[in-house]
Design a protein around this nucleic acid. Structure first.
Length: 719
DNA sequence: TACTTTGTCCTTTTT
DNA sequence: GGACAAAGTA
């Protein structure tokens, strides 16, 4: 067992061998962050500065947590299971299970994923007769989660106006509902755990005394509540080792607060700030491009990556006329790379939003290239799996109304809206769960669940699940359905998943005393599972830029580099939105080891409409000398401009038919046309409405934004 | 009651 | 283009 400290660079070594003090490690992309983190833990334990039980390490993804455990297992002779290593949610869950009574929760509390949570909110909004248009469930859900992530309960919300008051009321009612049903959403896991520590001095002191070293991965992605949770847990005794990269903060939209890095330095009086700037992943040109791009951001702690690997190839830039042609080009390029001996799994196609994947998939599928799309529906989120889980949840905890409603009449058993209404009335009147309020016709359903509970009580988990799946009638139901075969296969897979969910895995996520079924349900909620089989297949990797964070590939295609898409139009309006988009682009670029392709299309089908866009401003922010244009620089765009000025002669104003989305003309201009404005410069018309003096056109001016202009007033010229 | 059709809405990113 | 809900039909 060697820690191989001699392979670390001086900064890495300094970080790994730091004493028992707080430290902030600014770890650039590809700088060996995970290695430093795990080696640090191993070093602490080896040098007897701490016992395995005295370490708490927290990550954002299950994958990162698993990787850390695996690496530690290879470095240390001790079983790393005793260590508290996991995601924020996983660790909070563990704590809440262990102290469920103090936390005011039933031992078998169930965890709501976002889908379940939305369902719960919808139910609530309906039950309270709130206006669904004024209080869209999605917004209510967002409101609740945002407040929880700020550490605020409904009673703590500042009632600035009537609408906020109503939202706060809904929040309060939602929490009551959850409490009644014995369920907990993601944000609640954290808030509950935080409140438990804050309120219960004994418990707090216990954990503060226990954890001597707290290590945090992806610190830039922590939200305010997570930061407070860490602070509380650290107390005065623990040394906090925070690793992060402000340039890779891409989750501000869901509450991540980069400011935590500065707060940490101040609050903890951090003496040691270590920068890891040597990059072991990418060639020089790729890094230079990333550095140049990110230099356009103002709010940075400052860092410049360098590599000893040599400059490598230039970045290859491709301009396509349409999204379909962009996809076709990617197919050809991938085929060429594979012909040259590249593994498909070493190639990645990245995009800003999931909607972009369809065209790409279509082209890849037609060409017979094996590919794998990350994101999308995951295993535990599939309808049939959720149904099976709902039965299991009712078996584990019958107060779970969400689960009840999901399978009450599924598969159909003749229980309709009227029966349900009766039960809901009875439940409301007696203040019980729906299950407890079952009456009349639905008695058979209650009997079914109770039978299942009895019959599975003594069975090992996989067999219990197999039994429930069979007896619930799900299999039978899907047999009669047209494409039910896949669903049945997934139900069988669920049994396998339960078998694979072994003793040791269980110990990571839950307190040891939790029963196997609840532990498995928790696992299903906290780790939605990869959605496709074929993990080991040599397939082209496709994913959003967000999901690519932390990964690396030999060659990367960064696609859809268009204004409005990347940077996304909705982000431009957000505070610091553009800087976040740029960080996103930075993350994308730094995924590539040897080769990076950048591509964009002039027109793209999005949401069933053709969109016309300008090349992304991010292309302008990369030094020309690092790039090699595969198409003449902005050639197609120029050709189109020429065409536009020629066609100008015969263009006549045309009334925009309602719902007619293709090029419509207004005041002599038409959608797709290139124009020039004295103040905003060059742009593309993306939409038009009205006629004559009322004609207005929406113009995408790239860096200057997207604007609606009255043709009669604005000094627009065809460009 | 169960299934199909129609209509309306949205549409960034995800632990 | 898709998800979901309301309305319509067997």
């Amino acid at each position: 067992m060697s820690l191989r400290l001699e392979h670390l660079n001086p900064e890495q070594l300094a970080a790994v061998t730091l004493g028992d003090e707080h430290a902030l490690i600014l770890a650039g992309a590809g700088s060996g962050k995970t290695r430093v983190l795990t080696t640090r833990i191993a070093w602490l334990i080896k040098n007897a500065r701490v016992t395995p039980g005295g370490v708490l390490a927290v990550t954002f993804t299950n994958k990162a947590a698993r990787e850390m455990l695996t690496r530690l297992g290879a470095m240390l002779p001790v079983n790393p299971r005793g260590m508290w290593i996991g995601t924020f949610h996983g660790l909070c869950n563990r704590m809440l299970r262990a102290h469920h009574r103090d936390a005011g929760l039933p031992q078998t509390f169930q965890i709501l994923d976002s889908q379940d949570q939305l369902g719960a909110v919808k139910r609530l909004v309906k039950a309270l007769d709130a206006d669904e248009h004024r209080f869209p469930p999605r917004e209510v859900q967002y409101f609740i989660n945002a407040r929880k992530e700020e550490g605020l309960r409904a009673r703590d919300v500042a009632l600035t106006d009537e609408t906020t008051r109503r939202f706060a009321d809904l929040y309060a009612a939602y929490d009551e509902q959850c409490q009644r049903e014995g369920v907990v959403d993601f944000a609640e896991l954290l808030l509950r755990s935080y409140e438990l520590l804050a309120r219960n001095e004994l418990l707090r002191e216990h954990y503060q005394a226990r954890f001597r070293h707290i290590l945090v991965d992806e610190f830039q992605d922590t939200n305010k509540l997570q930061y407070r949770w860490l602070k509380l847990l650290a107390g005065r005794q623990a040394a906090v080792f925070a690793v992060g990269d402000d340039d890779q903060s891409i989750y501000a939209f869901r509450g991540a607060n980069v400011g935590n890095m500065a707060d940490f330095e101040r609050d903890f009086r951090v003496q040691k700030v270590i920068r890891l700037e040597q990059n072991y992943r990418s060639h020089g040109n790729i890094l230079d491009a990333a550095n140049a791009l990110i230099a356009n951001n103002r709010k940075r702690l400052g860092k410049n990556l360098w590599t000893a690997a040599g400059e490598g190839e230039p970045l290859r830039v491709f301009e396509a006329e349409t999204d379909a042609l962009e996809a076709r080009w990617i197919v050809e390029e991938v085929q060429a790379l594979v012909a040259d001996g590249a593994r498909r799994a070493d190639l990645a196609v990245l995009y800003r939003s999931n909607a972009q994947s369809r065209v790409l998939e279509h082209a890849l599928f037609s060409a017979g290239i094996a590919y794998r799309v990350y994101g999308g529906l995951r295993f535990f989120e599939r309808a049939e799996v959720k149904h099976a889980l709902a039965y299991l949840r009712l078996v584990a905890s019958s107060d779970d109304d969400n689960a009840f409603l999901r399978v009450f009449n599924f598969p159909p058993r003749g229980l309709g809206a009227r029966t349900l209404e009766q039960i809901q009335d009875a439940a409301k009147k007696n203040g019980t769960s729906l299950f407890a309020a079952i009456e009349g016709k639905a008695g058979a359903f209650r009997a079914l669940i109770e039978d299942l509970r009895r019959e599975t009580a003594e069975l090992p988990l996989p067999e219990a699940i197999e039994h429930v799946v069979a007896r619930s009638g799900l299999i039978e139901h899907y047999k009669n359905e047209r494409d039910g075969a896949d669903r049945i296969e997934n139900l069988e897979e669920l049994v396998n998943a339960a078998a694979a969910f072994s003793e040791e895995e269980r110990a990571v996520e839950s307190a040891e005393e939790t029963d196997p079924l609840t532990a498995f349900l928790t696992h299903a909620a906290l780790e939605a599972g990869e959605h496709q089989a074929g993990e080991g297949q040599d397939a082209l990797q496709m994913m959003t830029v967000h999901s690519a964070k932390g990964l690396e590939f030999e060659a990367v295609f960064l696609t859809g580099l268009e204004e409005g898409l990347f940077p996304h139009e909705q982000s431009v309006a957000e505070r610091d939105g553009l800087e976040e988009e740029r960080r996103l682009a930075y993350v994308a670029i730094t995924r590539a080891r040897k080769r990076l392709y950048l591509s964009f299309a002039q027109t793209r089908m999005l949401h069933g409409q053709t969109r016309y866009s300008l090349p992304s401003r991010f292309l302008d922010e990369i030094p020309e000398g690092l790039m090699k244009w595969l198409t003449p620089r902005f050639a197609a765009q120029r050709a189109r401009q020429a065409l536009a000025s020629v066609s100008q002669a015969w263009l006549t104003p045309r009334k925009k038919a309602p719902g007619f989305a293709s090029p419509a003309a207004a005041g002599g201009f038409r959608v797709g046309q290139n124009v020039q404005h004295p103040k905003f410069g060059f742009g593309v018309i993306v939409d038009a409405e009205g006629q004559g003096n009322d004609a207005r056109v929406q113009v995408n001016f790239g860096g200057q934004g997207v604007k609606w202009l009255a043709v009669a007033v604005a000094k627009l010229q065809a460009a």
